[in-house]
Simulated scan of single mutants.
Amino acid sequence: MHIWGLVIALLFAVPAAADTQAVGSLDGVPIIDALDVRDITTAGVQHYWFRAGPSPVGQPWLVPVVVIKGAQPGPRLMLTAGIHGDELNGIAVLHRLAASIDPARLAGTVTLVPGLNPPGLLQSARQWTPDWTRSAPNLNREMPGKPGSSAVAGFAHRLWQGLIRPNADSAVDLHTQSRGTAYLMYAFASSPRTRRMAELVAPDIIKMDKGERGTVENTLTDDGVPAITLELGRPEMFDDTMIARGEAGLLNLMRELKMLPGKVAPPPASLFVANDIVAARATRAGWARLLLPLGALVKKDQPLAEVRDAFGTLLETVMAPAEGRINMIATDPRTDQGGTIARIVWWSPDPVCANGC
């Protein structure tokens, strides 16, 4: 082949990297419209504001980003939190990782996004809520977004195209339960590879789950990037125990990925793996009192809760609809007719449920 033909062939064989696009700064922190961590050539910690779109008052929504570039080459790990604005423990986990990971010991790049949903965080709302007068969509059902179709779809598209997808070889999206409920430390996985990732972060429960369309986890996994969702307890608080467990689990995953030195800890012996879930619901409205704690093992038809009327008269006893483990409870005792009291996870032997029913 002629030398110029070889050069042209090589140019077209190697995809060009999307440049990091800086558009200004705020208090010395660069504001960017796109990030490619391969543009960072020096080991260290970089802070950015990612411009994710305009707010209803004409000012941009700015999403905080921390990039830790390692001294050695390696994979790109994407860690996100706060896509639901009342789910806060993951933000503290990412803050701790940003302070504790030494770039000199790191192989590869960790991108931390501690606050994907600024309007939801401002209003302590699960939804993406730029104002109270409009409908409130769930940002974690909008990935990869679509420009020009709606404000939330455009916001999701900018996050996806400019920040999340280009910088991820694997990913973990951090959550808690939302207002009025609580989880154990609980991971969702959808394949053998993502189950292994979930085992390494050492939750109490892994739920094999086909997932929801438009989530960060499932959209990445479907696009060839193994990803899990990690749930860390209760909403609207910083729980130091959950935060420490989340940090330790993610560091263990990074050791498995050869991003950090050290021995990989095995999954805990107490880990409960499930592939199906069922809700225990009240048939009467009233005041509900749980009879079993979060995380308890239950038998089918075992009493879970009592529902009483305004005078304290017992209206019904809610029974467990299946044998398994309680992975979620309602923490608000005010219960509507049909309201969820708890959710129980269990393992179905049906082969079609191996990666989630």
Rank of each mutant, 00 (worst) to 15 (best):
H2V: 08
I3L: 12
I3V: 11
G5W: 03
I8M: 05
A9W: 05
F12T: 15
P15M: 07
A18Y: 05
A18I: 12
A22C: 06
D27K: 14
D27L: 13
G28R: 04
A34H: 14
D39K: 01
T42P: 03
V45R: 15
Q46A: 14
W49S: 05
F50C: 06
A52H: 06
Q59S: 14
V66Y: 06
G70W: 00
L77P: 08
A81R: 00
G82Q: 00
I83C: 09
I83Q: 07
G85T: 07
L88A: 12
L88E: 01
A92I: 02
V93F: 01
H95G: 11
A98I: 02
I101Y: 03
A104M: 06
R105E: 13
T111K: 06
P118T: 03
P119E: 08
S124Y: 09
Q127D: 09
T129M: 14
T129L: 12
D131T: 06
D131M: 07
R134K: 04
L139S: 01
E142H: 08
P144N: 04
G145N: 07
G148E: 02
S149V: 12
S150A: 09
S150V: 03
A151K: 08
V152L: 04
G154T: 14
H157W: 10
H157L: 01
Q161F: 03
Q161N: 09
Q161Y: 05
I164D: 03
P166A: 08
N167W: 02
N167Y: 03
D169R: 08
S170L: 10
V172N: 01
D173K: 02
Q177F: 11
G180A: 12
A182K: 11
S191G: 09
S191D: 11
R193I: 15
R195S: 08
A198H: 06
L200C: 11
P203I: 03
I205A: 08
D209R: 01
K210D: 05
T215L: 09
E217I: 00
T221Q: 15
D222C: 04
G224F: 07
V225I: 08
L232G: 01
G233K: 02
R234I: 07
M237K: 03
F238T: 14
F238M: 13
M242E: 12
I243Q: 00
E247Y: 04
G249N: 02
L251C: 10
N252A: 15
L253T: 10
L260S: 13
V264W: 06
A265H: 06
P267Q: 05
P268S: 13
P268W: 01
A269Y: 00
S270Q: 13
N275E: 03
I277W: 10
A280D: 03
R284S: 14
G286Y: 00
R289P: 08
L292D: 04
P293D: 12
L297E: 15
K300N: 14
L304G: 09
R308K: 09
D309P: 11
A310N: 05
F311A: 13
L314T: 02
M319N: 13
M319F: 09
A322L: 05
E323Q: 13
E323H: 08
E323K: 11
T331L: 03
P333Q: 01
P333K: 03
Q337G: 12
G338R: 14
T340A: 14
T340S: 12
A342D: 11
R343G: 05
V345S: 14
W346L: 10
D350M: 10
P351C: 09
P351V: 11
C353H: 10
A354H: 05
G356W: 01
